[in-house]
Design a binder for these strands. Sequence first.
DNA 1: GGAACCGGGCTCTGCCATGGGT
DNA 2: ACCCATGGCAGAGCCCGGTTCC
Length: 385
Amino acid sequence: MAVAMSRVRAALMLHRAVPQPQQCLLASLQLARTLVCKAVETPPAAETPPEAEKNTENKLLLDNLKVLGVDVPMARKRQPGVLRRTETNEHGLVTFLKAKGADRETVASIISRFPRAITRSRQHLEERWQLWRSVFQSDQEVVSILHRSPESFFRSSDNDNLEKNIVFLSSLGLDSRDLHRLLTTAPRTFSNSVELNRQMVELLQDICHTLGGTQPSKFAKAVISKNLYILIRSTKRVEANVKFFREALGLRDSLLLAFLQGSGADILDMSHDILRRNFRMLQEKLTSVGGSKKDSITIIVNYASVLYLSPERLSEKVDCLLREGISVGQIVQKPKVLDFSLENLKWRMDELRKLHYDFGINGITVLDTSKKRFEAKLIKLSALE
DNA sequence: GGAACCGGGCTCTGCCATGGGT
DNA sequence: ACCCATGGCAGAGCCCGGTTCC
């Protein structure tokens, strides 16, 4: 523990120049570790069956789990080995989580979905909790993430690695707000080995270098804060996607770099096959209605999330707009209209039709506004009628 | 004052495969 | 032989409003 403490202290020294929120975070991380040091060492509760047989389930444990409301068949399906263990800490876990504000159902659901949780000792739980709390504001926030994704919290037993991750991610210049968003949105990031996270960051920095960028760290930070899922994807996937963009978009390096840390960051982590498929289908759809392949690139550069749309959804939206007399050129110039749901677009076009709105004369920007602004616009248009 | 531009907010786990350790 | 820890994958949008421009 003393070693860990000194590491955090060292991290604090290293990042003396960072903004205030980050200093606060590292300070609270240090405090968290201090508190855990003071916690009483509690060995895991032993649940030894009368006859500890190998390769058979621990009957006493099964009874305990049933009493706790755990879905035993589900637990058995997920991690059968846990049910054969002779030493587990289910009571300790229940007491611990309840003290943090989790109700009975939540705890039962957590164990059902990630049985290995009951193998963690009190000391381990306390330490891990405090590390999470160095990023979150309250116990309740941690409980809600645990309820959502028990695996993210319990899959790794390496608290030292978790601490290194927090220090490493802070060192990228991600402030406490970014870290909070990261841990809330993609909690698995913090269970990755710090080495895996480092590999992704290095890949991003390499990409920046390759494209002639001069601020690789800034680039990596920008991509991560724009796409919080990037660190739970494989470097293989991200690398393949960048390579594909490079070939398919035909942009100058500097433009590609701007694209990747801008709107392109959103789709950088897409499944590579789906990305290629959606790109191909976008081109096919546009050419089938009179557009060109160049148009599809213009759309992607201005609105990368178009590649997120399934071919069916994209086709429906484009057809829906064309039926209303909107031209392909208008869609290419204003692709963000594709961002809105089909239902929303239909409703807006119905309302505008009633008021004899002419998209040819007035353009289609009216479709790309918030509901509030759109309704205000409708009122004005009806007054003019 | 209204249109256009622009970026940000939500959001994503549960399962399988595999290699290492005992 | 078994369990644990870890890496990787599937699947695939919608909405809002601050700021700037004309």
